[in-house]
């Protein structure tokens, strides 16, 4: 750790931190929008952690009281704002993640020493989506209830492989909702923190990626330091937070009625909407098949493309580019399909 260390000044006294350690050169491109997406995600997770902790003060993970507690939270002006920030940030995080993945792929930043970070990123992606999913259940409205019902169905299918953890059959002493809450506020955040720590450590070790065309010259021509990068990231983060706050205040969080057992009428949030038409084809197994396909495709990218050349128009990087650009197109098409197709019962 060179950023936090005891540094002696000229007078012989000791300072716990010397700002100059942050003045090392980073690529000029580091402050561009495409290159701060990872930092924005880090900030988003921080926002989620803080707002989530505040919401946790008032939320009750009990099926009989959960919806009511969400309503109480939403009825309070300040807590409605906090919940709005939590929800809007959760909505935007998948966009930032996919853009982050796309930028990395287009600039070939997954190659060489950064390969390990690509794989860590995939696990981060899955962890984040699990967090968003568990969060969507906690609000305990019809959509949340049905999402859990789908999830439990998968848990039953994979019960021998540990899926029973996500079913009501595990125990009668704790409702499934409280177990989901445990995962959302404790286990998954811990996993996330560990993964982010590893992800950031690798970045620190191998350095911030540069634009391909600047790869060999940026060390000589760089005009910005890491400290400048931090300032830029701070500015981006503040802007991001202001935008989220405006959204939260003018499109505030709402509480929906408690769920109805035995009905399947809602549609999922936008990020899980692509599952919806696929469930018409594969049934609830779409919940497993679809992300497995996406994960597999992302996983094989560094394995397919081991070339050092960083050019999205040449070599095997073209395959990687095709794969990641397929993702937003697919989400868009599947979401439109989900709006066009007739609703069907999947459970």
């Amino acid at each position: 750790m060179d950023s936090i260390e005891h540094v002696s000044d000229n007078n012989g006294s000791s300072k716990w931190f010397d700002i100059n350690v942050l003045r090392y050169a980073v690529p000029n491109s580091a402050n561009s929008f495409g290159y701060v997406l990872g930092s924005l995600l880090l900030f988003s997770f921080l926002v989620m952690g803080i707002t989530g902790a505040l919401l946790g003060l008032f939320y009750t993970p009990n099926p009989q009281l959960a919806n009511q507690s969400v309503t109480e939270i939403t009825n309070n002006v300040f807590m409605r704002y906090i919940r709005g920030v939590h929800i809007w940030t959760a909505e935007i995080i998948p966009v930032l993640i996919f853009l982050h993945i796309i930028r990395i792929t287009l600039t070939g930043s997954y190659k060489g020493k950064r390969q390990i970070n690509w794989f860590l990123g995939i696990i981060l992606l899955l962890t984040t989506f699990t967090l968003i999913f568990t969060g969507s259940v906690l609000k305990w409205d019809q959509a949340g209830f049905e999402a859990l019902a789908h999830f439990e169905e998968i848990g039953k299918i994979f019960a021998p492989l540990g899926g029973i953890l996500f079913t009501s059959e595990l125990t009668v002493t704790a409702p499934l909702l409280s177990r989901i809450y445990l995962f959302h506020v404790s286990i998954l955040p811990m996993v996330l923190i560990l993964l982010i720590g590893a992800h950031v450590t690798v970045i620190k070790l191998v350095g911030i990626s540069s634009l391909p065309k600047e790869e060999k010259i940026w060390r000589q021509e760089s005009q910005i330091s890491f400290l400048d990068h931090i300032k830029a990231v701070t500015l981006y983060s503040i802007s991001f937070f202001v935008a989220i706050s405006v959204l939260s205040l003018f499109f505030p969080a709402v509480s929906r009625p408690a769920p109805i057992v035995g009905t399947e009428v809602s549609r999922p949030d936008w990020i899980f909407l692509p599952w919806y038409p696929l469930e018409n084809i594969w049934g609830v197994m779409a919940i497993v098949i679809f992300p497995s396909i996406i994960t597999f495709l992302l996983f094989i990218i560094p394995l397919i493309d081991r070339e050092e050349n960083r050019n999205p128009r040449k070599g095997r990087q073209r395959i990687a580019v095709a794969i990641v650009l397929f993702i937003p197109l697919m989400i868009l098409v599947l979401n439109i399909l989900s709006g066009v197709l007739k609703p069907a019962q999947h459970l």
Binding site: G34, E91, I92, P94, V95, F98, L99, I102, R103, L106, T107, L211, W270, I271, L273, P312, R313, V321, L325, P328, L329, I331, L332, N335, I336, S338, G339
Partner: peptide, 23 residues
């Protein structure tokens, strides 16, 4: 609901494609 974020994601993807000279 269906189109907001997927559209933003798609548009920014196209922006990246141009910015990073994929085409």
């Amino acid at each position: 609901t269906i189109l907001l974020w997927p559209s933003i994601l798609f548009i920014l993807s196209v922006y990246f494609v141009v910015k990073y000279e994929v085409v």
